[in-house]
Every structure is written in structure tokens, then in C-alpha cells.
């Protein structure tokens, strides 16, 4: 093979690699889950818990993305998972104060326009800026930055789902700082009497700044996640990366280039597939437990 051919081959491979990551997934119109048509089918409540710079609208979209990707994969999941009716919820982590800090830091310290800050809220330029990292690291590295009222509210929602008459298993999928809330809420749920049955609440963490996932839960943090990598430098006990976004073109985008975006985690491979596999195995475990 000549040098020119080798170079041409490399360019073609690059185009294939980039194209494979860039092409949007095709979704058919979402159909109702067949198990949800059966009144006696077991129910699960799947919660998304948002991270620190996530506004209400982004939380809705992140939860929607999770639902879309999950339902798209559901037909190929284990029979015990398909036999359950999965209901999706949000547990909001109120981060407007942090976004305000973020906005002020972006505008005042970096001289960005409002439009630029909103466009690059999770992007490379802001995530790697010293001024912004300070704003983000404070709530992510200090346990006292998460508020007890939110933990109590989240835990109450999980307990209500598990208890009669709902009798639902609960799977929590937190992103970023949401992992700190989910771990604390898990402790809260099982520290109160009557204790729910063990194993009725599972966590699958995404982009976690924590050093554990309660209940022996699973997690995925990307090696290209610049924010969590920054946290790890401050807190070496932070769970190590165990996935990546490969050569995803998302890393070129001002919106996703910090490698921390939840939408990015559920778009790039292999992180998307691995998160869905973690959800599936957690739901298989949940299926074997009777909440009531």
C-alpha cells in the first residue's frame, strides 16, 4: 500500500468514525409500553436527578433523553425488565443559585455575553476556565453544599413509591452533583422505620463526583469528563473513570466539549450503551424484589 493510499485510508476511517458518532439515532414514534397496558404488571419508578448547572428545562430534557434511550433499548432487554411497566420522574436538585454564580462568573470574569454563556453552559471553554471551575467545584466537593431539605424531599418521594399502595421498585439515575443527593437520599430512606425491603431502591450514577454509589450501585464516569477529572484532583477518592465518549464529534461542540453533559453521555458511545446496560442489570435485580 502506497503512502498516499495509507493516508487516504486513514482519512476515510476518520470520516467513518466521526460519521458513526455524529449520525443521530433514528427513533420511530414512541409506542406505549405493553406492560403498562396490564394492570397487574409490576411497576418501576425511574428517577432522573439533575446536576449542578442544570436548569429546570434542561432537567426535563435530560429526563426525556433518558426515557427515549431506555425505551428504544427496552425491546432487547431481559424478559423480566420488559415485563415491568417503567414510569419516569424527575427529582429536581435546585441549582438556580449555582447557575446564577455561573452566569455572573461567565459575564463578569470572562467577559462573555449572556448568549455565549447559555450556549456553552456545559462546554470546554467554561469548564476549563479557572474562574468557572471554582464556581463548579464548590458545590461538587463540599458535602455541606447539598441541602437537607432537598435530600428529605427526594427520600420521601422514593419511600412513597416503594410503599403501598404504589408498591413500585425505584431506580435513580443521577447526573453530576445529583449523585451526592442520591447517595444521601438512599441513606435517608433506609435510616427511617419502617425500613423498605432491601434492594427496592437502586442507583445508576452518571458523571459522579462521589467516592461511592450507595446500595452497591453501578456508575459511569467518562475519561473525557474534564469537570470530574478536575474534582478528582481535589478529591482523589472520587470514583475513577470507567467509560469514554470515544472520538465523538460532540467533543467539538461548544455545548458538549467539556465531556460532562448528561445528553452527551447518552449520545456518545460506548458511554450510552454502558449506562443502558447498567440500568438493565439494576432493573433485573429490582425485579427479583417485592416492595410490598
Amino acid at each position: 500500500m502506497s503512502v498516499v493510499s495509507r493516508k487516504l485510508s486513514r482519512v476515510l476511517w476518520l470520516i467513518v468514525l466521526v460519521g458513526a458518532g455524529w449520525c443521530p439515532d433514528s427513533f420511530a414514534q414512541v409506542q406505549p409500553q405493553s406492560a403498562c397496558q396490564i394492570a397487574t404488571a409490576p411497576r418501576t419508578a425511574i428517577y432522573f436527578v439533575n446536576g449542578v448547572t442544570t436548569t429546570l428545562d434542561e432537567a426535563r430534557l435530560n429526563g426525556g433523553k433518558l426515557e427515549l434511550e431506555f425505551l428504544n433499548k427496552l425491546p432487547t432487554m431481559a424478559p423480566s425488565v420488559q415485563a415491568m411497566c417503567h414510569l419516569f420522574f424527575l427529582n429536581i436538585n435546585p441549582t438556580a443559585g449555582a447557575v446564577t454564580d455561573f452566569l455572573e462568573a461567565g459575564q463578569q470574569r470572562l467577559g462573555l455575553t449572556s448568549t455565549a454563556v447559555w450556549t456553552g453552559l456545559e462546554g470546554f471553554g467554561l469548564v476549563t476556565s479557572g474562574a468557572i471551575v471554582q464556581v463548579l467545584q464548590r458545590p461538587l466537593t463540599n458535602a455541606d453544599q447539598i441541602d437537607q431539605a432537598t435530600i428529605t424531599r427526594h427520600a420521601a418521594a422514593y419511600r412513597e413509591q416503594i410503599a403501598a399502595p404504589s408498591c413500585r421498585r425505584v431506580l435513580v439515575v443521577p447526573h453530576s452533583q445529583g449523585n451526592l443527593y442520591s447517595n444521601a437520599s438512599f441513606d435517608n430512606v433506609f435510616s427511617q422505620t419502617p425500613n423498605p425491603p432491601v434492594g427496592t431502591l437502586k442507583i445508576v450514577g452518571v458523571a459522579t463526583p462521589a467516592d461511592t454509589v450507595r446500595g452497591n450501585g453501578l456508575y459511569r464516569t467518562s475519561s473525557t469528563d474534564l469537570l470530574i477529572e478536575g474534582i478528582r484532583r481535589v478529591l482523589p477518592g472520587t470514583l475513577p473513570p470507567n467509560t469514554n465518549w470515544s472520538f465523538s464529534p460532540l467533543l467539538l461542540s461548544p455545548t458538549y466539549s467539556g465531556g460532562h453533559s448528561f445528553i452527551g453521555y447518552l449520545t456518545a458511545e460506548p458511554s450510552r450503551t454502558q449506562i443502558l446496560m447498567d440500568m438493565e442489570s439494576s432493573l433485573v435485580a429490582l425485579a427479583s424484589v417485592n416492595p410490598c
Binding site: T113, T115, L251, L252, P254, S257
Partner: peptide
């Protein structure tokens, strides 16, 4: 790829930052 990504991201970021309000 990573070099292209970094340069591309930088260019896009810069263009966004300098866009007129």
C-alpha cells in the same frame, strides 16, 4: 482526532464568545 477536536472546540468557543450581543 483529539487535536482537531481541541482546535475545533477552541475556534467554536472563541467565535461564540466574540459574537456581538
Amino acid at each position: 482526532v483529539m487535536t482537531i477536536a481541541a482546535l475545533g472546540g477552541l475556534l467554536v468557543s472563541c467565535s461564540a464568545e466574540n459574537s456581538p450581543s
